[in-house]
């Protein structure tokens, strides 16, 4: 965890400085003396930088305690998560291009396969049941239409 704390600290410091920089075009104080649009975000950015420095310092002080906490980001379990993330991203793209329902019919089975479902029957039944349930609840019940394929818009 100690290593990651330093990473977090570095990232947050950069974020904090970015916030301050982005707020520069906005006035800190208006001519009337009231705080302007730049006031608050600059404050937040500065506080973030302070906190991240604090984090780095505290990590160094209690180094031993922090070393004990394990943080793993690579293992077979994690690989599955990253695959699922890829599925999610592709789902987003597919939803935008092919519309929600078609995208769902592709990616829900993909997700189920990834989770270890072996029976095709289970996959098909679950996908169609969910599809019908969503259609009834949202399209008919709430009258919210889900994204349509790109060629229909």
């Amino acid at each position: 965890m100690k290593k990651w704390n330093y990473v977090v600290s570095a990232v947050m410091t950069i974020l904090g400085i970015a916030m301050i920089v982005m707020s520069l075009p906005f006035k800190f104080f208006l001519s009337s003396g009231d705080p302007g649009p730049g006031f608050w975000p600059t404050l937040l950015g500065s506080a973030l930088v302070v906190c991240s420095i604090l984090l780095a310092v505290m990590s160094t002080i209690s180094a031993a305690k922090e070393e004990e906490k394990e943080v793993i980001f690579s293992s077979p379990a994690h690989t599955r998560v990253y695959k699922m993330m890829a599925v999610a991203v592709l789902f987003c793209v597919a939803m935008y291009v092919f519309g929600f329902y078609i995208a769902m019919m592709i990616f829900m089975p993909l997700a189920m396969k990834l989770m270890g479902t072996e029976s095709d029957k289970t996959i098909t039944i679950t996908t169609f049941c969910t599809l019908v349930a969503i259609f009834v609840a949202f399209q008919i019940g709430l009258k919210t239409s889900l994204p349509a394929p790109i060629f229909w818009r």
């Binding site: 997700a111 289970t122 679950t126």
Partner: peptide, 19 residues
Amino acid sequence: PKNILVPIIFTLTFVGAYA
């Protein structure tokens, strides 16, 4: 079972976020 529940929730988050 998680292998069924997780994809369903996955799909529902997409629907919910859109709706």
